[in-house]
Nucleic acid binder design. Sequence first.
DNA 1: ATCGGCTCGCGCAA
DNA 2: TGCGCGAAGCCGAT
Length: 456
Amino acid sequence: MGEGRVRPLAGEARAPGRGPVLYWMQRDQRAQDNWALVQAQAAALAAGRPLGVVFCLAPEFLDAARRQYVFLLAGLRETAAELAALNIPFVLLAGDPAREVAEFVARHDAARLVLDFNPLRLPTSWQAEVARRVTMPVDQVDAHNVVPVWVASPKQEYAAATLRPKLNRVLHRYLQEFPPLVTHPHPWAEAPRGLDLVAALDRVRAADHGPALAWITPGPRAARAALATFVSQRLDDYALGRNDPTRAAQSDLSPYFHFGQLAPQRAALAVATHPGAEASREAYLEELIVRRELSDNFCFYNPHYDDASCFPDWARGTLEAHAADRREVILTRDQLEAAASPDPLWNAAQRELVHRGKMHGYLRMYWAKQILTWSRDADEALAHAIALNDRYHLDGRDPNGYVGCAWSIGGVHDRPWGERPVFGMVRSMTHGGCRRKFKIDVYMKQIGHLVHGSQA
DNA sequence: ATCGGCTCGCGCAA
DNA sequence: TGCGCGAAGCCGAT
């Protein structure tokens, strides 16, 4: 599975419990291609124990909206069925994860507890709390990154350029085929039923932000199909077309990655072995591995990933120096949310976000940067961008989102550029620049149809 | 269409 | 200590 994939989180010296090995599934919500489950099953087989998976639904998670929970629960239903068919019970809990999981694990006297990895503060604090409360050994497995984040680098990296060689040096050791999860030979006879996955949506206190989504089907099976379609039909156009919002060259896989319904490593394997345009393969693997894992590196080593104190010194200085620059207009968060800015291109991007739950990658940068020009300062702009990103993006509340906003507004992982009003030396993007790069009128027309069609 | 200048600091070679 | 070069930039000159 690759050196360092598993790290003890607590209790190396603790005695194992007398019950099953339990995997507390959080970020990686799939049965196959999941290193945490591979590790949990290996431990269970070695000890001759049953294996179980527990998931705790937090009734509110960082302002997640209803359609995000719908996506999550639909995927979990499929994953639970897949696990049950392999003789691995799946148990759904609801409530405060730190308390519920700790109690559950103690009640069933788990032999070991296995965790997956998410660098964000809230899930990390839940894990730490559970590890402190339980009495058996706890292992953490980075099941999300191709190269485990603590292996890739021991520190916060300055930019993609500094992380890239570190990843490339060890990539061949980690970019390997997954072993399959097998039918578990030791049944967990006393496994509780847990909550019903269909009724669970009623326990969620989530507001309805944005219409229900029909263009994307949740679940690991649909994720594999979407990957196959992308590789066979759009990958060759990726190098040239990915920054053109009017061309469908993007993978559209990020919602699956975010909810762990598809392993980035599975996508990397599929792309790396695909014959065809070399430039497109490299461009995609750069974004899938280097830039995505740079986001995990940032959030793992910098707990201020979602406030302006995480910006590099040069960016904070230059933004400060331009804080008093005249703004065209100051917009409230409600005005931004309602796509009521003076820029029709920005409004179209915001409408795409609301109606599709996903904005084109190139426009995500433009969108966040423009918010800076309509905010009193960079702190306020970052707060607006993160709030709207998390509320509407299917892949919101993810390291990629926080780092994307910090890159756009605060120069994180970027370098300084020619000084301009408001932005200072932070790289700017303009309406005119977009006009030069793609047909903005075609994009705005496409979004007009999207909005009109889904409001009927 | 393409090019260069804008500007800072990391990491490495020396 | 010096030097090369960088996640998607802009703009004006050619």
